[in-house]
Amino acid sequence: MQLKVFFTGIRKTIPLMIGVIPFGVAYGIMGSQAGLTIVEIAFMSMIVFAGSAQFVAVGMISQNIGFAFIVFSTLLINLRHLLMGLSLSSYLNKLRSGWLYILAFGMVDESYATTINHYQNSESSEGNPYFMLGSAVGMYIFWIGSSIAGGILGNSIKDPLSWGLDFAMPATFLSILIPQIKSVRILSVILISGTCTIFAYLYIPGKWHIIIATVVATIAGTIMETIDERRSLKCEQTM
């Protein structure tokens, strides 16, 4: 039974597993260009398991930037995970802590998005950890595999991000997001987040655009909800 949930987690993540291939290959190529061995490239994917942080790290390694600065950048780039952890915690807080320590390792953008969507659409207020485990294991295998492929291929292939598969990620996230637009308020939150993201992406380095836009849009949504509630309360009182 739990095995079935585990495989459902994998199945729902397949588009994103395929979508991550060009990014893994690109990371592997960059890593070999930065002078890392295949084993080092694979080891980083196994231990860190965070695409954008790994891209930045190999970029910095090739520019001979100090290791302390690379670790600090990794921390900053990954701060967005705090928000993901916060939003998942309400579905997972009944689980034993051991589960949380395992699931946390596999919480990447793709497994987070797939899992939170699954939990929100399921009737229970508690999330099944096997679903997230499946989603994370699927991403993990494909991320490591494609990193190794990139490291082996090195410079012998054309830019993998031009295959068209780079659109698999936004397309999958769109297919998850669109059905969630059930009110004008949700649509507003999405548009606020998207607009903030574009401005922050263009003017602020790193991954701050995710944190800034998410915080702004989430606060905006909460304020809108509170105002709507007060208004409907007033209407009831005057009637």
């Binding site: 936004p170 769109l174 999405i190 992406y201 909460t222």
Partner: peptide, 22 residues
Amino acid sequence: YRSLKYIPVSILATLIFPGIFI
């Protein structure tokens, strides 16, 4: 607690918009 439901849609938007518009 009330704000939690807006986090996933916001994060999804931050992952989608740059991939399409930038």
